[in-house]
């Protein structure tokens, strides 16, 4: 599952929540993705590619969820159906499904929920039970709830303004719902992950984010300190086991 350069055309690029787009690509020859891997997308008019995690992939189809946060993602959002994108595929390590025996806890925050869709599918396909805890600022920001429920996951929502689900942060919701799990998988903003870190046992993984240059391990732009020394998030991650993070 090494990196490859591919050209895929856009079949949908739709606003699904404030500032959040669902980009669907026709990917007839897409290599299989592990949940938690990402792609680097060439954006017209921008020098560097943009790293975007794969939310879901199946036969001939690749789905990315992205939030417009700057010029690059704004340019991406303006691309019409039919436009062709150049991507580097199958980047990063992805989540380790084998870490879970029976019960998985998925925790996502904001746009960080994106890779949990495929993770949920793959865990369910191998017979594991999935509890998902998704945190957002407000009800209109909620992503992936029906998709995860359709896969048979138990989904809990937390919103900061209390407009849906449990009022508060995912850390509040975690303590309230006391889920049963033997492995956890977290993806979201860094402050959320650092707040969750002391509340979770060993035996789980965090998917980290950082401003990237190349996304392929060449530039050392996205380094994080780990218990094994400095590691490149794009190349050695983005997923790191909890016990490798000296938080």
């Amino acid at each position: 599952m090494t990196m490859e350069k591919r050209y895929y055309s856009i079949t949908a690029n739709t606003l699904v929540a404030p500032q959040v787009y669902r980009l669907e690509l026709a990917a007839p020859d897409a290599p299989p993705f592990r949940a938690g891997q990402f792609v680097e997308v060439a954006v017209p008019g921008k020098y560097l590619r943009r790293p975007i995690s794969v939310s879901f992939s199946d036969k001939g189809r690749l789905i990315l969820l992205y939030k417009v946060v700057g010029e690059g993602t704004r340019a991406l959002a303006s691309l019409p159906v039919g436009a062709e994108l150049e991507l580097l595929t199958s980047l990063g390590n992805g989540f380790d499904l084998d870490a879970c025996r029976e019960n998985a806890l998925l925790i996502g925050g904001g746009i960080g929920v994106a890779p949990l869709h495929q993770l949920c599918r793959d865990l369910r396909a191998s017979g594991r039970k999935v509890t998902a805890l998704l945190g957002f600022n407000t009800a209109s920001d909620i992503l992936l709830r029906p998709e995860l429920e359709e896969l048979g996951a138990t989904v809990h929502i937390a919103t900061l303004d209390g407009s849906a689900g449990i009022a508060g942060l995912v850390t509040d919701a975690l303590q309230q719902i006391q889920p049963v799990f033997d492995a956890f998988y977290v993806c979201g903003p860094m402050p959320m992950m650092r707040a969750l870190y002391p509340l979770l046992p060993d035996g789980g993984e965090f998917s980290l984010e950082e401003r990237m240059g190349c996304g392929t391990g060449l530039c050392f732009g996205c380094t994080v300190q780990t218990t094994d020394g400095p590691r490149r998030i794009c190349h050695d991650g983005p997923v790191f086991p909890k016990n490798q993070l000296p938080w």
Partner: peptide
């Protein structure tokens, strides 16, 4: 270890790095 992140900034015609 190098510098703290962010270490990369895109610019017209290239990028800044502070690895």
């Amino acid at each position: 270890f190098g510098n703290p992140t962010p270490r990369i900034a895109e610019c017209p015609g290239g990028l800044l790095n502070a690895v």
